[in-house]
Every structure is written in C-alpha cells, then in structure tokens.
Amino acid sequence: MTYLTVLSSLGGGVLIGLAAAWLLFFNNRTAGISGIAAGILPPWQQGDAWRYWFLAGLIISAPLWKLFGGSVQIQIDAPLVVLAVAGLLVGYGTRLGGGCTSGHGICGNARLSVRSIVATLTFMTTAGITVFLVRHGL
C-alpha cells in the first residue's frame, strides 16, 4: 500500500462521510444507496423526487471526475452470467436485510446501531468466504 493509496482511500472515505452527513442534515435521510435506488420503483410516493436527484449526482460523478483530469479505473473480470446472478443476490439481499455497504456499513455503524453492526459482520463474512471459494477453493 503506497502513501498515495492511503491518502486517496482515507480521502474517499471522508467524502463519503461528508455526503452522508449532508443528506442527514438537509434531507433528514440516511445515505443508504440500495434503499434510495429501490425507492424509485413503484409504488411511487409523493416526495420521492430527491431520490432521482441523488442518483443523478452519484452517476454523474465519474464523468465529472474525468473532466477535471482524474482517472476512473473500473475493471470487471467476472463473466456476465456471474454478474447477473450477483446482481440478483445483491438486489434481493439488500432489501431483505434492509441495507448495504452504505446504509448499514457506514450510516448505521456510525450510529452504533447493533442491527447494522451485525449486518456488516454478516455480509463481510459471506463475501470473504465467497471470494475464498471462487479464488482458492473451486
């Protein structure tokens, strides 16, 4: 891990924390991405417009970063079939568990919510086991 990696990782984390605090302060909302994204599906409710604006900001961040000279590295090695299965599991699992890496992992843990701590330990463990099996076990 280089000095630059340490800085960019910490700095990225600080920005994520700032964004979550901002949404909490101005919108009274937790920055849980799975919940915000799933909320654009029907049944639609009044006052859901902010979701589209949040997601628009999120999606536009990478091209904007490039525009100002930053580099965006995205390398996907998994086959499409695996990605389709993984997407289904992530979509269904985050709804059933009520949060993902952002909702539980950052917002919930920052509030020391026991549910979020348990959820985070659970998905970290199954993710670790899955990677181990794929890379070293099978």
Partner: peptide
C-alpha cells in the same frame, strides 16, 4: 432472521462480483 439472511445473501453477491449498489 431477515437481517441475517438478507445480509448473508448480499455478501455472496458482493463477493461474486466485487460490486455493491453504489
């Protein structure tokens, strides 16, 4: 059970792809 099961399922998908929702 929902919290545990859902989080476990999410973790498997995350581990297969390296992608979480954000």
């Amino acid at each position: 059970a929902k919290l545990i099961t859902g989080s476990a399922i999410f973790g498997i998908g995350w581990g297969l792809s390296g992608f979480c929702p954000g």
